[in-house]
């Protein structure tokens, strides 16, 4: 086991994928010489060459569209979108081309493309650099949308995403890039939990808290705090936002009878809304309280000085847990 930051673990995962398969390419803005704004691709161009780690112009649509052309010819491109808010210029290529072409071809075409997106707030940045756009892509059939919550998962999941024959939107919690955990660099990813499965991080009996990405650590801290108040919280890291691992979600809610969904993205029409609908339908007779949601407000992402008031934190998660018990 090696202790690594999330940024470093992703870097090691990319390196392993590139070593294992010469068809794996990396492309994006400042991914080569600079090594990425968040250092995720640091040193890879030096080791694998400019043909496999390509610095591109500022052209998000061009990057993703070019990756589609490469994938049509058997390559496995990994595109980096430098910041969450920069994905919108590529929206057409992702939604109109990438997501639809395999379906439209009746499965003849496979587009094994990974689009890495540092997302979420909490680093004192501004709008366009702190956003959580994941649900746009959850809404789009044909894409897999996943997010890692810690370095160990980052290392395994980026490799699983690259191995997948489907297009994968890979959301990296940028405020957690510097978090450290132990990572098993020697172990293969075959033994790791598949990327489309949720992971139960803390077992509990009173309430299920569902989260992903940057909120995983927040919710684990909330669970620890609640335990001291005598409440038993089950924390589940969703990991896969599309498709959802409903089997794990429903089993937990049927056990606890309460469900709180936590994400940084605005609550309105967010992933929590979808989960609430599904849980209500499938676990109705087990529920002691409505499914509650904790998330960002329905505003554009606020200025850095007040982002702490926008972002869900320990208190807001615990408050939702309290409300779940008030019914």
């Amino acid at each position: 086991m090696t202790v690594l930051t999330l940024s470093r673990a992703l870097n090691e995962g990319l390196r392993k994928a590139m070593e294992n398969d010469p068809k794996v390419l990396i492309m994006g803005e400042d991914v080569g010489k600079l090594g990425g704004v968040f250092r995720v691709t640091d040193g890879l161009q030096k080791d694998f060459g400019e043909d496999r780690v390509m610095d591109t112009p500022l052209a998000e649509s061009g990057i993703v569209g070019t990756a589609i052309g490469l994938a049509l010819r058997g390559y496995r491109p990994v595109c980096e979108i430098q910041f969450d808010g920069f994905i919108f210029p590529a929206f057409d290529q992702i939604v109109s081309q990438l997501a639809k072409m395999p379906y439209r071809s009746g499965g003849v075409v496979k587009l094994p493309i990974v689009i890495r997106v540092p997302f979420g707030g909490g680093i004192g940045a501004v709008e366009h650099h702190s956003e959580s756009p994941e649900v746009f892509f959850v809404h789009t059939s044909g894409l897999r949308v996943i997010s890692c919550g810690d370095p160990a998962d980052g290392y395994a999941m980026i490799q699983q995403a690259i191995s997948s024959d489907d297009p994968v939107l890979f959301f990296e919690p940028k405020r957690r890039y510097w978090d450290k955990t132990e990572v098993d660099l020697a172990g293969g990813v075959a033994a790791a939990l598949p990327m489309d499965r949720a992971r139960t991080l803390a077992s509990g009996t009173d309430v299920t808290v569902l989260c992903y990405g940057p909120m995983v650590r927040t919710c684990m801290e909330a669970a620890a705090a609640a335990e001291s108040e005598g409440r038993s919280i089950e924390v589940i890291d969703l990991r896969s936002l599309s498709p959802l691992d409903t089997e794990t979600i429903f089993a937990s809610v049927r056990k606890t009878g309460r469900c709180v969904v936590v994400h940084e993205a605005p609550v309105t029409a967010g992933l929590g809304a979808e989960i609430a609908a599904r849980v209500t339908q499938e676990c109705f007779y087990h529920l002691e309280a409505p499914v509650l949601r904790v998330g960002g407000y329905s505003t554009p992402y606020p200025p850095a000085r007040i982002e702490e008031h926008y972002l869900p934190d320990l208190d807001r998660v615990l408050d939702a847990v309290d409300r779940a018990f008030a019914y």
Partner: peptide
């Protein structure tokens, strides 16, 4: 795909980046 005809495209301009990628692969 067998005839390397990579499609019509309902999005005006949507096919151009794909052509760039195909050519880059070659």
């Amino acid at each position: 795909a067998g005839r390397r005809f990579y499609g019509g495209n309902a999005i005006v301009g949507g096919g151009l980046p794909l052509a760039v990628g195909l050519a880059l692969a070659d």
